[in-house]
């Protein structure tokens, strides 16, 4: 190795080392420690006791755990199709209009930048059954009033609505960027051939946009699996565990019941679920959007 290369090596390590140290201390080491803790029985007060895979076995046999898996899946099924579908409609429309694009982009994106803690408080007020805005809207359109956060099933609907409200803008802007990178000559050619608007959307837009759609769908699934702030503020997982999504289940076991080992086992389960979707993105999602 030449002297020049040695100097380069040395500097390379020097330049990345602060970041690598921070990564190691605050991410990689805790990841390892989490696995170690998941093999222990530990309430933070008495010493740890090694229990092998007992926490995982307990998890698999726990009704409350499976309830949380079910609620998380329902939350994903509730948020993903609507949020992606709405975003697709908004993006195609924004890509069509001539006036007011900037205005609508800002409006649709506003919820994305705001704090979920503040938004969740406002929505808790909006979903108040007696004088909340949500029931007022139902009155106006002539539908029956709902109990919202006071009913296990309707509470899930309420937090799903909040989740959609918060993330539609993110999906819209990414899809819009994808649409804008589709070359216009496809549409010009189709216009000359006399294609209708719907035909163009079906035969050009949707296929060429599919890598971006795949990306935002996977990102939306991951975000929905991680939902936490709206739950902790609006429902505390209730009523009757009706909104007890996995991240909240994990949090409560760790920081309210102090079952650190058990919570770490749940954390690894959640990590595994998210990892599968991440892998799907790397494996099947094209990393760059190519059209040719």
């Amino acid at each position: 190795m030449g002297r020049r290369a040695q100097i380069d090596n040395l500097h390379g390590w020097l330049f990345i080392s602060p970041a690598i140290v921070i990564f190691t201390v605050f991410i990689f080491a805790p990841m390892g420690v989490a696995f170690f803790i998941s093999l222990q029985k530990w309430n933070m007060l008495s010493p740890m006791r090694f229990v092998g895979l007992a926490n995982y076995v307990k998890m698999i046999g726990s009704d409350h755990f499976w309830n949380s898996v079910r609620i998380s899946m329902l939350y994903v099924l509730g948020t993903v199709p609507v949020s992606i579908g709405l975003a697709m409609i908004f993006a195609i429309m924004l890509n069509t209009i001539v006036h007011g694009i900037a205005f609508f982009r800002i409006m649709i994106y506003l919820p994305v930048v705001t704090s979920m803690a503040a938004a969740a408080i406002v929505f808790q007020y909006i979903f108040e059954p007696t004088f909340g805005l949500a029931n007022y809207v139902l009155d106006v359109v002539g539908l029956e009033r709902m109990m919202w956060l006071n009913d296990p099933n309707q509470a899930l609907v309420a937090v799903v609505i909040v989740g959609i409200w918060k993330r539609v803008g993110y999906n819209t802007i990414i899809l819009l960027a994808g649409l804008q990178s589709i070359p216009t000559y496809y549409y010009e050619a189709a216009t000359i051939d006399g294609a209708s608007r719907m035909q163009m959307i079906r035969k050009i837009t949707i296929p060429l946009l599919s890598p971006v759609t795949f990306f935002v769908t996977v990102m939306q699934i991951i975000a929905s699996l991680k939902v936490f702030t709206s739950i902790v503020i609006m429902t505390n997982g209730g009523p009757a565990r009706g909104t007890d999504v996995l991240p909240y289940f994990l949090y409560k076991n760790a920081f309210e019941y102090h079952k650190m080992g058990y919570a770490s086992a749940v954390a690894y389960f959640l990590f595994g679920a998210i990892f599968i979707f991440t892998l799907a993105q790397f494996r099947f999602g094209e990393k760059r959007v190519h059209y040719q």
Binding site: A34, K226, A267, L270
Partner: peptide, 16 residues
């Protein structure tokens, strides 16, 4: 690390 959910790190980081 981009994909790592904070929830997974909650317990060990709190401990740290």
């Amino acid at each position: 690390t981009l994909m790592l959910p904070i929830q997974v790190l909650m317990v060990p980081l709190y401990f740290e």
